[in-house]
Simulated scan of single mutants.
Amino acid sequence: MRIVFYEPENTFGQIRTGVLYDNKVIDVNEAYRSFLTYNEASASSADQLVPASVNDYLALGKAAFDRTKEAVSHAIEHQEDSVMLDRNLVTLKAPLKQGAKVICVGKNYRNHVSEMKSEIPDFPVLFAKFSNAMIGPEDQIQKSSKTNKLDYEGELALIIGKEASQVSRDKALDYVAGYTVGNDVSARDLQKRTPQWLQGKTLDHSTPIGPWMVTADEVPDPHDLTIKTTVNGEQRQYSNTRHFIFNIPYLIEFISSLITLQPGDVILTGTPDGVGFAMDPPQFLENGDQIKIEIEKIGILENDVRQ
């Protein structure tokens, strides 16, 4: 399933959960309510079992996904137009729970480490992004006046589906709810002026993710996905997740040994080579640039840059 978090037309701030199907958005809460009614069950339990809100829905993890499949199949089979919205009449928002931790991994592709003239790390390089930085697939990347070296980084992002603490590598993928596309936009001048990267990594309205979350069952091997990035139609990055230095089970084991992960938390798994900083001469993002990141089996994330 492609689970979306959307804002209906003329309902500013009311973000609901849906599933994308045939250029329609099926509202999962309403679809499950209809499913219960059809089966002569109490429709009042829909709000608890398949909540409309992003936070409540993601907190239920796999249980909510299983019920969603039932409801969506029922809505499609019975052609229930009342629970389906035209895709063009909604705004897609980031697949991100309010208050979620966004943990990023640096230096996770060998060729990227090489182009940045750095060293292969012995342990995953971790940093964080805060909620002020996170935007959705239909938002514009804000270019702060504080930077002249804004750069793109196309990345596979994973979303945690259940509480994870001290998770072993062999069980790690059981904790993944799904995958999405991320752009770890980085202000290189701010990032590199101190040993800590944070100031260059979490500027306001700078980091888009989306356009939806593809449930983990549809991505049986997240370590064989082509990833490519174009800027204004010019291909800049082209790689495959098989080139991770630290794969996803290792990352979940490592991170969960230090930090308890909650449903809805996001891990950005690192970017391949081809960033603007490493080009000769360097090519940084300017007002009006269009960045398109495509990951096989996941989708396309496309955002413009605005000063």
Results as ranks from 00 to 15, higher is better:
26 I>N: 03
130 F>H: 14
301 L>A: 10
195 P>L: 06
227 I>T: 04
144 S>I: 05
269 T>P: 00
266 V>M: 14
224 D>E: 13
125 V>F: 00
134 M>D: 07
64 A>G: 03
156 L>N: 00
99 G>W: 06
133 A>S: 15
246 F>W: 02
56 D>S: 12
146 K>Q: 14
36 L>V: 11
47 D>N: 13
108 N>F: 02
159 I>D: 01
97 K>H: 05
75 A>L: 04
139 D>G: 08
122 D>P: 03
40 E>G: 07
248 I>A: 01
104 C>I: 03
149 K>G: 02
123 F>I: 09
231 V>L: 11
1 M>Q: 04
276 G>F: 10
238 Y>P: 01
25 V>H: 08
269 T>N: 01
250 Y>R: 10
25 V>M: 12
203 L>R: 14
123 F>S: 06
138 E>T: 11
8 P>A: 09
277 F>Y: 15
4 V>L: 02
15 I>D: 11
278 A>V: 11
241 T>H: 03
290 Q>T: 08
120 I>E: 00
113 V>E: 01
169 R>D: 02
90 V>D: 00
113 V>H: 01
216 A>Y: 03
14 Q>I: 15
287 N>E: 11
225 L>Y: 11
236 R>F: 12
109 Y>Q: 03
144 S>D: 07
305 V>K: 09
307 Q>K: 12
189 D>Y: 05
140 Q>K: 15
201 K>C: 09
255 I>H: 07
201 K>L: 08
277 F>I: 11
92 L>H: 06
13 G>C: 15
84 M>Q: 09
69 K>A: 11
217 D>K: 08
4 V>Y: 00
279 M>Y: 08
296 E>F: 10
145 S>M: 07
208 P>V: 12
45 S>A: 13
159 I>R: 00
37 T>D: 10
87 R>P: 00
88 N>D: 11
67 R>Q: 07
16 R>W: 04
113 V>K: 01
276 G>I: 10
253 E>I: 08
